[in-house]
Amino acid sequence: MFQKQKRVKLYGKKLKKLNHDIFERDNHRCIVCGKYVDDSHKFHHEPCGQEKSDIISGGVVLCDNCHYARHNTDKLKLIKTKCEEYLRDLYG
């Protein structure tokens, strides 16, 4: 039987450092379209929803347009898959 992973919820300086580290790792570029994104934006959790966790292997940089599309358009599955594959390539 698989044990459910415990969610990590960070606040304050720890969350700010995680955000900075994710933006540095992704070169401040949206992983979908390559557009520059400054780190005043918050990283995108993948997976999102109840399974999200504040860990480096669970966050990616998305521009506003791709983030909107990830949640609200017919590109949802395409962007979700791209995020998952990107993180899997980095972290296994």
Rank of each mutant, 00 (worst) to 15 (best):
R70L: 13
C30P: 04
S57A: 10
K4D: 09
F2E: 12
K77F: 11
K9F: 08
E46S: 15
C66L: 11
G49H: 02
K14D: 14
V37Y: 05
Y11S: 03
H44P: 00
K17A: 13
H45C: 09
N27F: 07
E85A: 12
I56R: 14
D39F: 10
G12C: 02
H28D: 10
H45D: 08
F43S: 05
L78T: 11
D64W: 00
L76G: 14
H67K: 11
H44V: 03
C48D: 12
M1P: 04
G58P: 08
K42M: 10
S57I: 03
K17C: 05
K52D: 09
D21M: 01
L90T: 06
L87H: 02
L90N: 02
V37E: 00
D89T: 09
L10D: 03
I31A: 11
E85G: 13
V60L: 06
V32A: 07
R70M: 10
P47G: 13
L87E: 06
C33H: 00
Q50Y: 06
D21I: 05
R29V: 00
L62A: 09
S40V: 13
K6S: 15
D21E: 12
Y86I: 01
K17W: 06
G92R: 00
V60G: 07
F43K: 01
F23E: 06
L76K: 15
L87T: 00
F43V: 00
D54K: 03
D39E: 15
T81H: 09
L78C: 11
D54L: 11
Q5D: 07
L15M: 04
I31Q: 05
D54P: 06
D21S: 07
L78E: 15
L78W: 10
A69K: 14
C48F: 12
L78D: 15
E85H: 10
V8D: 12
S53E: 09
Y36P: 05
L15P: 03
D74A: 14
Q3K: 14
N72C: 13
H45M: 05
D74I: 09
G92Y: 03
Y11M: 02
Q50I: 07
V61S: 02
S57C: 09
P47H: 08
C83R: 00
K9Q: 12
E51K: 11
K52V: 02
I56C: 12
C48V: 01
E46N: 14
T81D: 14
K13T: 06
L90W: 01
S53H: 03
K75A: 09
R70S: 12
I31G: 01
V60A: 09
K6G: 09
N65T: 08
R25F: 02
L76V: 04
E46W: 10
D74K: 15
M1A: 07
Q50L: 06
V61D: 01
Y86W: 07
C83V: 00
Q3R: 11
Y91F: 15
H67A: 09
V60S: 07
E51L: 08
L76H: 15
R25I: 04
T81N: 15
K14A: 14
I55F: 06
I55K: 08
R25L: 05
I79V: 10
I55A: 11
D38L: 08
C33V: 02
G12D: 04
I55G: 04
S40L: 15
P47Y: 07
R88D: 13
Y91K: 07
K16W: 04
